[in-house]
Design a protein around this nucleic acid. Structure first.
Lengths: 146, 146
DNA sequence: GCGAAGTCGTGGGTGAGTCCAACGATTTTT
DNA sequence: AAAAATCGTTGGACTCACCCACGACTTCGC
């Protein structure tokens, strides 16, 4: 009693991509939830570490997040003492966002959790296939560094 | 003038998958919009063709769509004279959904549009790489035809 | 026959996620 | 000094997916 005879739409890369992305998102979200974090919290926290003291606007642009939503994420992160917002003395419009020690430690745990989730996601593939797949994915996602 | 040196998160398959899926979804949605269709409309229309006269509940289960949302989609499709809902004589609880000639013609055009959008999505890849990528994707998405 | 239980189609409502418009405060430009 | 631009923030609109409840109908048990 197999399912429907594989409708045409489900073999389209766009459909498969959606399914695989949903699976990956669910796995990562679940892994991060164990540390009380959500997707954007992790992304923003990671970007804060990489970009040192950074203004919110630059932060939002670099991760592709709406400034509106960034406010909420930073409020949560600051409430948890993971980041600090200090007024920039050079430009008092800006809020210089920095990472706290606690934020760095939690970020490390989250990165490990995200890495494990990705391993689960790619479990059906061999090591060589994973590299291959990631390479193809980079070219398709439009996230090349050019 | 490249971006930041590729923060760690953006090289994770889950992130790339999300980006690629978003790109694919946008391309397909744009292609379908030119025919006045949206994602689920296309999916449902295709499923109706494959499953012949089918009850709405079965239809919803086979495409993984909430019955509630299916009502709206079918209303739109019926308003456009693409499908017809006829009461099933054998079980008058059911609405036997069937495809009209007009629905079949539009579906063909939508499938062509979706195929073209997928070609655009996979444009950076060679033909061999596309097959390879699709194969890997099937194993990851968990949508194997078993 | 006749009522209880289950299914089908439909409506309403909730919650998360994304995006756009606008405002006060502050800086830069003219 | 006046005008334009930028920053952080707030509000609201919109989509999408999920769950609950109701009437209509069929099937099962008496």
């Amino acid at each position: 009693m197999s399912e429907a005879p594989l409708p045409a739409i489900r073999s389209l890369p766009s459909w498969l991509l959606g399914r695989a992305a949903a699976r990956g998102r669910a796995l990562v979200a679940e892994a991060l939830a164990e540390h009380g974090m959500r997707m954007w919290h992790h992304v923003v926290l990671s970007a804060v570490r990489d970009l040192a003291p950074v203004a919110q606007a630059d932060l939002g642009r670099s991760v592709g997040l709406d400034p509106k939503d960034l406010v909420g994420v930073l409020n949560d992160l600051q409430s948890a003492a993971l980041v600090v917002r200090a007024p920039d003395p050079a430009d008092r419009r800006k809020n210089a966002v920095s990472l706290t020690d606690e934020g760095g430690r939690l970020l490390a745990r989250c990165e490990e959790a995200a890495r494990a989730a990705n391993d689960t996601l790619l479990a059906p593939l061999s090591a060589a296939e994973r590299d291959q797949f990631t390479g193809l994915l980079i070219r398709i996602s439009g996230t090349d560094g050019s």
